[in-house]
């Protein structure tokens, strides 16, 4: 860990939301979100995760407790100004169907009164950033785009005002698994470049594991556990967290490690050149599944170019897993600098 403590972007201090009629949506949540981290709020529907997120841009006002953004109590900030300074992404339906892609993206800049040429520049820049050539996409309407493209536009729109903070409410929820996987990759790549503070809401634990630097698990309005994906998987704090993590926590944990991390030197026996191999960059989950599928206790490991690197064994997987479960430090290596850079 580095000696300088990470700066806090958002603080929730004993925040509760009670609706008229007595339904407690969020109960006494205290949470610090660090600058530049991806914090994923995960829970079932009705867990209070979305309500918690919406309190950060004052779409929902807390009943008690306080929220600070950049050190400032948001109840003292004009909600319109606050919202224009925070990027907001919802499911693909959030694009305005009557506006072109360019108009959708330029919305916050136009609300902020940017001059037209600067708006246009920003639109082109953002479309490039999310991989949609501006000359092809700027003039289209949302209904002419695929689900994945809509979501890219949604992200571009949220980034338009260059906010430090992004709130993302199940943004990839309506996509097919393949598109979703692609967008996860792009999301992580983009985040390595931009280093925004991101609060991401999902009900999908796998998505949380994939994207989060830290996961905040909510249930029944209560914050059950906050930790790195590995901590949450290896040491669920409560029964409810364990339920959410699922019976296959071990498999998910293996999915977070690469073969590289369990690489062993080749034994005396030479590997079967014709048998199955695994690449060093694949996950340990893939390695395990391959072993199970072909009934072997070890697999040769190859580089991307096919040259032999070493081997991975069932024994090695167990050792790596045991190491993971002891590892309580925030994960760094797999996610660039992590939060403590």
């Amino acid at each position: 860990m580095s000696c300088s403590s990470p700066t806090i972007a958002i603080t929730l201090d004993r925040v509760s939301k009670v609706y008229p009629g007595g339904h407690v949506a969020v109960r006494d949540v205290t949470l610090n979100i660090q600058t530049g981290e991806v914090l994923v709020l995960v829970g079932t529907s009705g867990s209070g995760k979305t309500t918690t997120m919406k309190m950060i841009n004052r779409l929902v006002e807390p009943t008690s407790g306080s929220i600070r953004v950049g050190g400032e109590d948001i109840s003292k900030i004009n909600p319109i100004q606050l919202r224009r300074s925070i990027g907001y992404v919802i499911q693909e339906i959030g694009l305005f169907p009557h506006m072109t892609v360019a108009k959708n993206i330029a919305l916050v800049p136009s609300l902020k009164g940017w001059p037209k040429p600067r708006q246009n520049e920003r639109v082109a820049e953002l479309l490039e950033l999310v991989g949609l050539p501006p000359d092809q996409y700027a003039k289209k309407h949302p209904h002419q785009l695929s689900g994945g493209q809509k979501q890219r536009v949604g992200v571009a729109r949220a980034l338009a005002g260059d906010p430090d903070i992004l709130l993302m409410d199940e943004p990839f929820g309506a996509l097919d698994p393949i598109t979703r996987g692609q967008l996860h990759e792009e999301f992580l790549k983009l985040q390595r470049r931009l280093r925004k503070t991101i609060v991401f809401v999902t009900h999908d634990m796998l998505e949380a594991i994939r994207l989060a630097e830290r996961i905040a698990v909510m249930d029944g309005g209560v914050l059950e556990q906050v930790g790195t994906p590995r901590e949450v998987l290896a040491h669920p704090a409560t029964r409810r967290v364990a339920d959410l993590v699922g019976a296959d926590a071990t498999l998910k944990l293996l999915g977070l490690c690469t073969v590289e991390q369990a690489l062993e030197a080749l034994g005396a026996e030479s590997p079967d050149a014709l048998g199955p191999v695994i690449r060093s960059g694949d996950s340990l989950k893939d390695a395990l599944l391959t072993m199970v599928a072909c009934g072997r206790a070890s697999l040769p490991v190859v580089n991307v170019d096919g040259t032999l690197r070493g081997r991975v064994t069932l024994q090695g997987l167990q050792t790596a897993l045991a190491g993971q479960e002891k590892d309580r430090r925030p994960q760094g290596a797999a996610r660039g600098q992590g939060t403590h850079a």
């Binding site: 779409l59 319109i80 100004q81 919202r83 907001y88 919802i90 959030g94 009557h98 609300l111 709130l167």
Partner: peptide, 24 residues
């Protein structure tokens, strides 16, 4: 959801009405 997206992006009530609700 669109009205809430408009709110979440920082549109005032009047802007929401003329730019989102009315056209739709």
């Amino acid at each position: 959801a669109l009205v809430e997206a408009a709110r979440g992006m920082g549109m005032t009530g009047v802007q929401r009405f003329w730019r989102v609700e009315m056209p739709l």
